[in-house]
Simulated assay, not measured.
Amino acid sequence: MLTAGSSQVAFVDALLVNSGAKMRVWTVSEAKAGTLTQCLGVARLIDPEPYQVVVKRELPAWRRGIFSPYRRLKVPEPQLVVSCGGVANSHVEAIVAACKVKPFTVHLATPQPEYTGVFDMAFISRHDWSDEKARHTNWHEMVGVPHQIDHQIVDRLREQARKRWASKGDKVVTVLAGGANRAYLYDDATIDRLIETVKQLAANGWTVLASTSRRSRADLLDRLLSLRSDRIVVWDRQGANPFRDFLAAADAFLVTKDSITMTCEALATGQPTYVFDLAKNPGARLDKFEWFHRDMSETLKLTRPFNGTLEGYDYEPPHESRRIASLIESEVARRRPDLAEHATRRENARKNAAK
């Protein structure tokens, strides 16, 4: 993993479907799980091991020229850069400036106004979409956010996960809890309500698999751990993360409203996904989150608000990571055949050297 200023870089080539060649992919994002998984969810469908550039803050103006941390990287250049998050914009610009051959650049959010010319494509969630953004011909609307969960992964894990937590055919609900952000609060009353909900679900015959995030209040995890029983399983955040197994075992989900990413990951399984309401922090950020949840529930009919019961319903799971990766590949093949040709020559040279 590269952080700005590091001099050690490793690359793994991967197949670009449309050209039959191999491309080098970099991801550029903060270390936040939500932004990082968006980049990796798309990038790994093009390069199974993309090189990760993790940034902490916007690149200062004085580090964008001869003092750029990317200027003297004596390594093969990326051919595709997939980025996410506001602080990534300036880093992508600096990386592009350092490349002899301009890489194809994709941002998984609205680019900051001063960086719109840096990106070849942008994918913007419906809750951030507008008519003004639609005027950018290479900006595209997306449902929620991309991520690394795919129904094929879940299907592969489901049998073993069910054997572990539902060997008697029990119905399983996976509870995914996050933490406070600029839109929602985890006050004491909200935590009390969530704890009581978990207890009630278990009393109603559900096996509950509960997982918290790095943003979760420590006392929320402590209170969940105190509920552990034959019917309530809680990850204590020690050892391997059972997140994917929790997803695979579920017959339904209860996801707290603060996480768009966890909502989208749950939806990838095709299982009923209910959203748990939280105390609200009024402001523009709350308005966007609430719009997202209304859109997912009322317009797209993907999620449902939790009102005390979990019932089955059908929907077509969105697969945004695959759709976005396919659009990127198509655009690279159409607009940047030079990248594919270069990759082909490099791959042929590698094969000849191996003979």
Rank of each mutant, 00 (worst) to 15 (best):
L2T: 13
V9N: 03
F11K: 06
V12C: 11
D13L: 10
A14V: 01
A21Q: 07
R24S: 04
V28L: 08
A31M: 10
A31C: 08
A33L: 07
G34Y: 02
L36T: 14
T37F: 12
L40T: 04
L45R: 13
E49S: 14
Y51V: 15
V54L: 15
P69V: 05
K74N: 14
V75K: 11
P76R: 07
L80Q: 05
V82W: 04
V82T: 06
V87K: 12
N89D: 14
H91I: 11
V92Y: 04
I95K: 01
A98S: 15
C99K: 01
K102A: 14
T105N: 00
G117S: 07
D120R: 08
A122E: 06
S125L: 04
S125V: 05
E132T: 15
A134L: 02
A134C: 07
R135K: 15
R135S: 14
H136S: 12
H136A: 13
V143W: 06
H147I: 11
H147G: 08
I149L: 14
Q152M: 09
D155Y: 04
L157W: 03
W165L: 03
G169Q: 00
V172A: 00
V173A: 04
V175P: 08
V175Y: 08
L176M: 15
A177Q: 08
A180H: 09
D188V: 09
R193M: 08
L194T: 09
T197M: 01
K199D: 13
A202W: 08
A203S: 12
N204R: 12
T207Y: 07
L209T: 07
T212Q: 03
S216P: 08
R217Q: 13
R217N: 09
D222G: 06
D222E: 14
R228P: 11
R228F: 01
D230E: 12
R231G: 01
V233W: 05
W235S: 00
G239P: 03
G239L: 04
F243L: 10
F246W: 05
F246P: 02
L247T: 01
I260S: 09
M262V: 09
T263V: 15
L267V: 13
L267A: 10
L267Y: 00
A268K: 02
G270H: 01
G270T: 06
L278R: 03
N281Q: 11
D287V: 14
D287N: 12
H293A: 04
R294Q: 12
M296Q: 12
M296A: 05
L300S: 07
L300Q: 14
K301R: 13
L302I: 05
N307D: 12
N307R: 13
L310W: 09
G312R: 06
Y315M: 04
P318R: 00
H319P: 00
S321M: 02
A325D: 02
I328T: 10
S330K: 14
V332A: 12
V332E: 04
R336N: 09
E347G: 07
A349M: 01
N352C: 05
A353N: 09
